[in-house]
Amino acid sequence: MRISKYLTLAASAVALTLAVGAAQADSHLKSIKIGTEGAYPPFNNLTSDGKLEGFDIDIANALCEQMNVQCEFVVNDWDGMIPSLIAGKFDAVIASMSITEERKEKVDFSDKYYNSPPAIAVPKDSDITEATDAGLDGKVLGAQSSTTHSNYAEEKLSSADIRLYPTPDEYKLDIANGRVDAVIDDVIVLSEWLKSDDGACCKLLGTLTPDLVINGPGAGIAIRKGEDDLREMFNEAIIAIRDNGKYKEINDSYFEFDVYGE
């Protein structure tokens, strides 16, 4: 009888612990903090009055609505994005972060939510004619630090003098003022910049063939290791907004093609 009583008590305690844990997990998943950079238009950008806008932001809001969760955005410097995620400053990163094996050693990722190739931009009067290592030999090439684009430059375009910047704004300023000869970034980011008054200095030289190891299969949502439920929620929501037309609605408000890719 005593054994049976203890077993019953133990079972009750375990059930209570599991119930509390489940309630806490459920409560957590009803409110999610999302980290983003706010300096990478047209994907994420802070307006002059401090509001976030861009494709990443609209997709994040659509995913949150699909998951029926309340989402709060936290603006964070790109270089500290993964450390801040791991430290618990936010629960997920939606900031055009490419899924790479190097990053997967530290965090988990959802499936991709878009994929676009890198490209090179140069001044309109540039004598650079090829978006190749040979074509950039001895030239100063600007890139945002801690990105797949800077990694690509260092690995594939090493004949150039590579100069790294904390955000794209700095390299854009330097190429406009003649301090760098070329810049590398996502083709969409560069193309949208070149359409603006600030990008009137420059032109697109050409796109680059992505390297799967360096560039990964696309941009995904970064999540702390072990938070499988949250990752699966995002994966299911990505599929759902692709199927119900919400993704296309957002996509078409920014781009003339399906940025999701193959």
Rank of each mutant, 00 (worst) to 15 (best):
E72G: 09
D91R: 10
D77E: 15
K112G: 00
D111Q: 14
G54R: 06
A92I: 12
E105F: 12
I59S: 05
D77C: 10
D79V: 14
I82V: 12
E72A: 10
A95V: 05
Y114S: 07
P117F: 04
G88W: 12
L52P: 07
G50M: 03
V107Q: 07
E53D: 04
P41N: 10
D49W: 07
D49L: 03
I86D: 11
S98C: 14
C64Q: 08
P83I: 15
G54W: 05
M67T: 06
P41F: 08
P83Y: 00
F109A: 01
S96Y: 09
P117K: 06
L85P: 00
S110P: 01
S110K: 02
A119T: 11
Y113G: 05
N76K: 12
K112T: 10
D77F: 15
A119P: 09
S98F: 12
E72T: 15
D79H: 09
I59M: 12
A60I: 07
E65Y: 11
F109R: 02
L52C: 01
F73L: 11
A119Q: 01
V75P: 03
F43Q: 07
F90H: 10
K89W: 06
T47I: 13
L63Q: 03
Y114W: 06
N76I: 15
L85D: 00
S116K: 07
Y113S: 00
G80V: 15
Y113P: 02
I82N: 00
K104Q: 11
Y114I: 14
S116H: 02
S84T: 03
M97H: 01
A95N: 04
P41L: 10
T47A: 08
P41M: 08
D56V: 12
G88A: 06
Q70N: 12
P42W: 04
M97C: 02
L85Y: 08
P118T: 00
G80W: 11
E105N: 15
A62K: 08
D58A: 09
A60Q: 01
C64S: 05
F73G: 08
I59Y: 12
Y113K: 03
V74K: 04
D77P: 14
V93I: 15
A119D: 01
R103C: 05
A95L: 02
D77Y: 15
T100Y: 09
V75S: 01
K104D: 01
V69K: 10
E102Q: 06
F73E: 08
V74M: 09
E102M: 00
N61K: 15
R103N: 04
Y114R: 11
D91Q: 07
E72L: 14
P41I: 10
M97Q: 05
D111K: 14
A87D: 03
W78F: 14
Y114P: 00
T47Y: 04
V74R: 07
A95C: 05
Q66T: 15
E72Y: 11
P117H: 03
E105M: 14
W78K: 15
F109L: 06
A87L: 10
S110C: 07
P42R: 00
N115F: 06
N44W: 08
N44L: 02
C71P: 02
S116L: 10
W78M: 11
I57W: 09
D111P: 03
M81L: 13
D77S: 14
I57Y: 09
G80A: 12
A119I: 13
S110R: 01
D56I: 05
F43C: 11
K112Q: 08
G88C: 08
E65S: 15
S110Q: 08
G54P: 05
F55N: 02
F55S: 11
D108S: 13
M81D: 10
